[in-house]
Design a protein around this nucleic acid. Structure first.
Length: 296
DNA sequence: CTCCAGGGGAGAG
DNA sequence: CTCTCCCATGGA
């Protein structure tokens, strides 16, 4: 995809491969806010960006252009991916609907925390919990360039007309949290899972995951408390761009039963079958399905 | 009141 | 290995 990098801005004029609402609402990220049709904002780790959309172009406003170039996966050709998948009769309408979806490259630690919290939870509460943890254990950053002030934003504030935001906690910062702190964040019974995992994690282990193959990554992640197959798949897909996995949640389970006229609840078997069907493009297919059926 | 939310752990078989 | 039941919490 063609795009232009400037000092504090990335300009995208090919709107057939980038739709910010679709990218943010397809279930891969929780720390964002869509203010209106033309303005959205995102926090990832300690970085912040605003995405401004109009009829002919998208502008990504940020203090770290290189970070968000990778974050939004801008170097990948999504037209080729969509073409490969569009022969599938189940997927074709989903791709037409979510034509501008891209799979983000997010932080491994942030995805581990986020998807442990996501288990048997709803998206609104997941977002609230993650923003709460960022406020309690992250760092408040005052921006140095001119951003738009976003009223009622859950992820940014203004101080004397300057925009501020809270970073996602680092591993070291979150190690200071107690089980009770996590309970106050609204995690319920997941508080203990997250506490155990955070205490167990170290940076060397996190770095080692990237060099493993797909099955090794799955085995390693599943050993963490609160991480089962579905959560591990999400972590692998959204942090490691491991697209040969098919996360099966309640929505995908419903979609599968709907399309195949079955009523199974064996998510592991569903995942295996769908991965066999979509191969190395499974992760993309999953996102098109999820966005399409969840939007209806 | 019950049911559900981007499921996983623990125990039983 | 697979199957079942339970898990905190808040909104519908």
């Amino acid at each position: 995809m063609k795009y232009t990098k400037l000092q504090n801005k990335i300009i995208i004029e090919d709107l057939s491969q980038f739709n910010i609402k679709q990218i943010l609402d397809c279930g891969q990220i929780f720390r964002y806010y869509i203010a209106n049709d033309s303005l959205a904002e995102v926090v990832s780790e300690n970085k912040y960006a605003q995405i401004i959309t109009n009829d002919t172009r998208v502008e990504i406003l940020t203090e770290d252009v290189e970070y968000f170039e990778r974050f939004f996966d801008l170097n990948r050709d999504y037209t080729a991916i969509k073409n490969s998948l569009s022969n599938d009769k189940f997927l074709s309408p989903c791709i037409d609907f979510g034509y501008g979806i891209r799979i983000l490259n997010q932080s491994l630690f942030e995805m581990i925390v986020s998807f442990i919290i996501s288990a048997n939870n709803n998206i609104k509460r997941i977002k609230n919990s993650l923003n709460y943890l960022s406020k309690q254990f992250g760092e408040k950053i005052t921006t140095n360039i001119k951003f738009n002030i976003v009223n009622q934003s859950p992820i940014s504030e203004q101080y004397k007309g300057v925009l501020c935001y809270y970073t996602f906690p680092t591993l070291q910062q979150l190690k200071r949290a107690t089980i009770d702190d996590f309970a106050k964040a609204g995690l319920g019974y997941r508080a203990e899972y997250l506490y155990n995992t955070v205490q167990q994690l170290n940076n060397q282990w996190l770095d080692s995951i990237a060099n493993m193959d797909c099955s090794q990554q799955l085995d390693s992640l599943i050993n963490l408390k609160g991480v089962g197959e579905k959560v591990a798949h999400c972590i692998m897909l959204f942090a490691l761009h491991q697209t040969e996995v098919f996360p099966v949640d309640t929505w995908i389970n419903k979609v599968y039963n709907d399309l195949t006229n079955t009523k199974t609840s064996n998510r592991k078997a569903i995942s295996k079958e769908l991965t066999n069907r979509y191969k190395h493009l499974s992760g993309y297919a999953q996102q098109y399905f999820f966005y399409y059926y969840r939007s209806k």
